[in-house]
Design a protein around this nucleic acid. Structure first.
Lengths: 152, 152
DNA sequence: ACGCCGTTTCTTAGTCGCTAAGATGTTGAA
DNA sequence: TTCAACATCTTAGCGACTAAGAAACGGCGT
């Protein structure tokens, strides 16, 4: 467990902040191109990254919105053709939000640019170096996620 | 310029997406703890990351908001004590938004947690490995920024 | 110096999305 | 069956955003 010099730490903090700002900008850009609000895109992203379909209530929890707001979000996403409401056959109170296949296509198209960005960066590294970068990414996500989801 | 195998590319795309979602979540968490909206925090971040003080109009451009909306943003940030309005002495039409020193303190406090996260990750790598990670971060920011700020 | 137009910020009216609280429909257990 | 808990939707009220115009200022030409 190596000590980290202050100047190195500060530079990495700056990278994080810069990436953070670019990411937020990127999200609103994507939302704009998809013709939905940033909030709607955020919820759609949640629904797409989940293993199975999410319920409306779960989306409310994960996004931090009220259930009433989520009703509106799903309304708009459904009208735009990105998702579909399906009543849970086992518990008909619940509404499952299913991402429609067409959306995957549209979405993939929009993200091709991002994919190319990733490729442009990775092409500058050898396979051995990429292994290290992969370890770095995984670790960052784990530590970051832990900090986000544990009570202070 | 090494070729990047598809499976590697896909894994890195997944990391990017996960980081992206965590980042957006992190931003709204920070905003909440600062007692301002996500929009306001985004503008404050812009003002803090700039070299000199920004004008209201420049914040509108950078944030994508209308000038009217920015007036409201600055009103709220000023009332909360994070920034101060200063008329540009050279062009008294302009309003310079100055980040107040107290804010730096509050901000630093909130970001100590993030700093610790960065440190926890970096401590797992040797100085030589960190050099590589630094190259990766810089390159990612450059390529990402180029994609964001060039017309399609 | 004066008038005039472009620029910068602020104001106002209208719209939209969010929260909070209650209504509606559903479940599971007594 | 009846009732309490639950999941989603509906509604009222509020706050923030956009668009358009007002107010203040700068700088040019005459």
């Amino acid at each position: 467990m190596a000590e980290v010099p202050t100047d190195v730490l500060e530079r990495f903090a700056w990278y994080a902040r810069e990436m953070s700002a670019l990411t937020v900008m990127f999200h609103s850009r994507v939302a704009e191109q998809m013709g939905v609000s940033a909030t709607d895109e955020k919820c759609l992203d949640l629904a797409m990254r989940a293993d199975g379909p999410l319920t409306a209530g779960r989306i409310a929890e994960l996004s931090g919105l009220s259930t009433g707001a989520v009703t509106g979000v799903i309304d708009r996403l459904e009208r735009a053709g990105y998702v579909r409401r399906v009543r849970d056959p086992h518990d008909r109170r619940k509404v499952l939000v299913e991402v429609t296949p067409q959306n995957s296509e549209k979405f993939a198209h929009l993200f091709e640019g991002a994919m190319e960005t990733v490729e442009r960066v990775l092409s500058q590294f050898t396979p051995e170096e990429r292994d290290l970068l992969e370890r770095y990414n995984k670790l960052t996500i784990d530590v970051f996620r832990e900090r986000m989801f544990t009570p202070d």
